[in-house]
Amino acid sequence: MNQAFIDSGLYSPHPGGSSAEDNANSSLNNMRTLGLTFLILWSALVLTSCATHVEVNGTFPRPLNKQLPISSVVVFDQAFSSYRFENTDGREVSIAVGQTQVDLFTTVTRSLFQIATFTNTMPTTSDTDLILVPKVEEVQISMPFQTKLNVFEVWIKYNLQVFDHKGEAIADWIMSAYGKTPTKFLKSDSEALNQAAIVALRDAGAHFIIAFDRVPEIRQWLNNKTSQTRLSTSTLSQSKLSQDRPSETRPSETHPSGNKAPSDKREGAIL
């Protein structure tokens, strides 16, 4: 019998020789099993620590911005609302941003547009002024083991497709967002990547709010819409006036050249 095993105190002697040996063998087997289990668990822990899976989770504040006087329908298709980035080249990393980016775009579109409704399928026609279809073009991440920098980084490239109420394309706006977070002692990779992804999503929201009406095609569409609204308001006013006083005209509604007066500044543009 193993003397060290006896010395370890795990062996309790019994009067019957064979019974004592059986017990000792049984204890030895138990210990081996325990050791093996520990090794398997440890190996599993090591292997698991090589893979990083993140379900991005966070909330977004209501933005402080001027609302655009337009109604919209936002289409969150299945690919967008369940988007998961997976990197299997080298270290296994996956980030699920789908639901959180739906939360983000819900918050920012509600804030930017006077009316925002949401659906998961592209409507053929719409009662709203525009249809917005956000799509994820690409996600990239970098981690300290790749860059040797003490930061976790996340890039998200969106393609924001904007259509008018008839479904005709207005713009394909490629909008990129970036977020990073520093490494921290005892902070897990998952926690750091989640934080970097939230920073990237906040950046996407900021970019969307600030730059939506600066995209040339959207700007032109907004200007045309404002002009049309002014024109229809003007026509309505003129017809009302002509009903009241048929012979009176309103020169201020027309430019000296005879063309329609230029539109005012965009309502959503600040800074």
Binding site: F60, P61, L64, H207, I210, I270, L271
Partner: peptide, 28 residues
Amino acid sequence: DSVYPWFEPRTAPLGLKRMSKMLSEPMI
């Protein structure tokens, strides 16, 4: 959060001139 998105890394004012311009916007 209270002034989102005006103090994010993309939008935060780097100088007083920009800060002053930001404060000229009544909403902010």
